[in-house]
Simulated scan of single mutants.
Amino acid sequence: MAVESFTQPDTDLVPRQSSRRSHTVYVALQKQIVLGALEPDAVLLELDLAQRFQCSQGTVREALMQLAEEGLVIRLPHRGTHVAPCKTADARALIGIRLHIECDYLDRVIENADRDLLADLHDRLNAMRNAARDGDEYLLSLHDRAFHARLFSSADLPVVAPILARCLIHNHRFKILNSKPNRELEETAERHVPIIQSLEQGDLDGLTKLLGHHISTIVDFGPDLTTARSK
């Protein structure tokens, strides 16, 4: 069986909460789930994963626990672990939560915005552009999520930030699994330009509208997933 490989930039960009080896497995599995290489409801066996990554089952178990905390896998007693589903109803609910988190506290973001924040956002934008030009959708997703997390960090609501992080990863997974093929990745990166411009101008109303539309139309820039609710 082939040994799984992963790139160092991926592991460096995702915050590490465990041993280096477990983190590497966790990031590799997260990437496969987000990109759809591991499909919804796929069964994940610790022994098989340990062989793939040439590590202990304990290392795999630690990585799976982190994925479970993100909601990307579901672990059930005596039933094992499987990849979480990716349903429209969940996507709508998470987008609604994300809208409230990111848009309701923009007055705090603008109030606390400084040169460091703007510089960081420009850096993330350029990183997204580079990933898009390289056709690296997962790396683009990492920098995209980091852009929004950094923007929200200026609201100074650290207890809320992990909730936003969970919304972001599931929003991106839903987008990747449900968007049309051959999506323009560079256009995805450029969608962030007016957000930065509005922030630089201190335009609260404009920023609120821009960010709200940006979040609501995450899947191929439409449809607006917040306009209807599935049963």
Rank of each mutant, 00 (worst) to 15 (best):
residue 114 D to R: 07
residue 100 H to E: 12
residue 72 L to R: 11
residue 227 T to Y: 07
residue 143 H to D: 10
residue 99 L to R: 14
residue 147 F to A: 01
residue 36 G to W: 03
residue 87 K to R: 14
residue 39 E to P: 00
residue 13 L to Y: 13
residue 219 V to I: 11
residue 162 P to D: 09
residue 198 S to N: 07
residue 192 H to R: 00
residue 95 I to S: 08
residue 155 A to I: 06
residue 191 R to N: 03
residue 24 T to H: 10
residue 205 D to R: 03
residue 195 I to T: 07
residue 121 L to F: 08
residue 73 V to C: 04
residue 72 L to W: 13
residue 156 D to I: 05
residue 109 V to A: 11
residue 207 L to Q: 01
residue 178 N to C: 05
residue 34 V to Y: 03
residue 147 F to E: 01
residue 229 R to P: 00
residue 144 D to K: 09
residue 95 I to C: 10
residue 55 C to W: 06
residue 190 E to F: 11
residue 73 V to E: 05
residue 220 D to M: 08
residue 133 R to D: 10
residue 78 H to G: 11
residue 136 D to G: 04
residue 24 T to F: 08
residue 89 A to I: 15
residue 96 G to K: 13
residue 41 D to K: 07
residue 35 L to S: 08
residue 61 R to P: 03
residue 57 Q to K: 13
residue 140 L to R: 10
residue 126 N to T: 01
residue 116 D to P: 00
residue 88 T to G: 05
residue 104 D to K: 04
residue 214 H to G: 02
residue 226 T to I: 09
residue 226 T to H: 10
residue 158 P to V: 04
residue 58 G to T: 14
residue 189 A to Q: 06
residue 215 I to V: 13
residue 44 L to P: 09
residue 120 D to K: 14
residue 212 G to M: 05
residue 53 F to G: 04
residue 214 H to A: 03
residue 67 L to P: 02
residue 148 H to I: 09
residue 74 I to K: 11
residue 33 I to D: 06
residue 118 L to K: 14
residue 151 L to C: 08
residue 10 D to F: 14
residue 117 L to E: 06
residue 206 G to M: 00
residue 103 C to A: 07
residue 73 V to Y: 06
residue 219 V to Q: 02
residue 150 R to Q: 06
residue 192 H to F: 03
residue 73 V to Q: 04
residue 81 T to M: 12
residue 98 R to W: 00
residue 79 R to T: 11
residue 52 R to V: 00
residue 158 P to E: 06
residue 53 F to T: 03
residue 114 D to S: 08
residue 64 L to Y: 07
residue 178 N to I: 05
residue 115 R to P: 00
residue 124 R to C: 11
